[in-house]
């Protein structure tokens, strides 16, 4: 059984939350960049799918992240209808968002390669 990562957030645990928030924000941007405008549920569903069920987002984590990205101008949200004629709020990445995504990707690559190099050493 693979460990499950349920990214829940406590209102009081601020510092750890920042790191988790940052990670989630990048993942959301990546989804919206790769797949075009999506509504919240779709983003969560896709993330769960890609991670083979490891990432299970609850609303209390996902939607603040979407609001934060919107407040920073990286995505823009508008109400629209789904294919099943349901009203939903769709989010699309902006130019600034794309730039941010590129920056974050580069940073992650760097972090990962450093960690790899360091952790390899221990073996």
């Amino acid at each position: 059984m693979e460990p499950e990562y349920s990214i829940g957030m406590s209102n009081r645990d601020n510092r750890k939350a920042d790191i988790l928030q940052g990670t989630l924000d990048v993942m959301v941007l990546q989804m919206l960049n790769a797949l075009g405008p999506l509504h919240g549920y779709a983003v969560a569903a896709r993330l769960e799918q890609i991670s083979s069920g490891a990432l299970r987002l609850n609303m209390g984590t996902l939607y603040p992240s979407l609001m934060r990205l919107e407040q920073r101008g990286f995505i823009r949200g508008d109400w629209d209808v789904t294919e099943n004629n349901r009203k939903a709020r769709f989010y699309a990445i902006t130019a600034a968002g794309r730039r941010q995504l590129t920056r974050q990707k580069d940073e992650w690559d760097r972090t990962v390669s450093i960690m790899r190099a360091v952790l390899r050493e221990q073996d």
Binding site: M59, G60, P64, M67
Partner: peptide, 17 residues
Amino acid sequence: LQVGGLSQAMEAMRDQR
């Protein structure tokens, strides 16, 4: 159960807003 409760989510949203 899966996606969490509405009221807690609302509270988280208000904190962000």
